[in-house]
Design a binder for these strands. Structure first.
Length: 268
DNA sequence: AAAGGATCCAACCGCATCTCC
DNA sequence: GGGAGATGCGGTTGGATCCTT
């Protein structure tokens, strides 16, 4: 959204991603997987560094990314895990299905931190002893973080299973915004979302329109025309990536990837 | 209505860690 | 074991948008 497009000294484009770039990246990763981020932009026809492609995919384009408002439960998990782990955003995000570390980090800095500190300040007037404990846990030493991370609950862990502290009244930390269960948009199934099926929400920002354009484009040429990377065919098979399941759209599991007419029509 | 400040969040940067040879 | 390259992670930036005056 934000950065002014520019190029670095090697001609690599920087700044905001265009719908066309998104389309290329989605097309490539869904078809070939993210086998090598360094090489990927070259084969995908992108003038971006691999790092930028990876970030864009992981934080924005990959499937099952939940966007929009956070639920009470999600905020509770973030607060509790942040107490326990510190700024281990990836570990925290791992406990929140569909949330990225970047998004969790942003949400913490823009919403939760403020309220957390206010609450902390309020409590400090009540109990200094508790505050001391909090100072320890809020900025854990790296070794302590590692230990805590090793103790992390698995992805199925609910907020109730995470140890609570006795000095926080989480009820005062909740966002005044409506629960995301009411209004949040979720790219649980991007492929379905872009079909415009009844009852489905799309992205609530400018990119949603871009995404629709991207996938609309698919109906025109992506599934019927050879992909750009095919033009770079390497007889040694170098271009052929390992298909990493986590890099694929769930919808693409099974026959759709290979052209199921039924799925194809649903997708478009 | 306009100006200025505050907020939000996508994206970049640099360092840490992992993996492979 | 160690060096090089790839990937992951957290801190930070900065422009768009929202809010207040």
């Amino acid at each position: 959204m934000v950065r002014t497009p520019c190029c670095d000294e090697r001609g690599m484009k920087k700044g905001t991603w265009t719908p066309e770039e998104d389309r290329k990246l989605i097309a490539y990763v869904t078809r070939y997987g993210c086998w090598n981020w360094r090489q990927l932009p070259k084969f995908a026809g992108l003038s971006r560094c691999g790092k930028s492609c990876r970030l864009r995919w992981l934080n924005y384009l990959r499937p099952n990314i939940k966007r929009g408002n956070y639920t009470r439960e999600e905020e509770e998990i973030i607060i509790r895990l942040h107490e326990k782990l510190g700024n281990k955003w990836s570990a925290i995000a791992a406990q929140l299905q569909g949330r990225t570390d970047n998004e969790v980090k942003n949400h913490w800095h823009t919403n939760l931190k403020k309220r957390f500190m206010m609450n902390k300040h309020k409590d400090s007037s009540v109990s200094l002893a508790h505050d001391d404990h909090q100072e320890q846990t809020e900025v854990p030493k790296s070794s302590e973080q590692k230990t805590a991370a090793a103790d992390l609950p698995n992805a199925e862990t609910t907020a109730d299973q995470i140890p609570q502290t006795d000095y926080l009244d989480y009820a005062e930390l909740w966002s005044p915004q409506p629960s995301s269960s009411d209004v949040s948009s979720m790219t649980t199934d991007i492929a379905v979302a872009i079909t415009g099926a009844d009852g489905l929400v799309v992205e609530d920002n400018a990119t949603s329109a871009a995404m629709e354009t991207i996938y609309a484009d698919f109906s025109n040429d992506f599934w019927t025309e050879p992909f750009l990377a095919d033009n770079f065919y390497d007889p040694n098979g170098l271009y052929t990536p390992l298909m990493e399941p986590e890099c694929l759209y769930p919808l693409f599991d099974g026959d759709f990837l290979y052209g199921s007419e039924q799925h194809h029509q649903g997708f478009i």
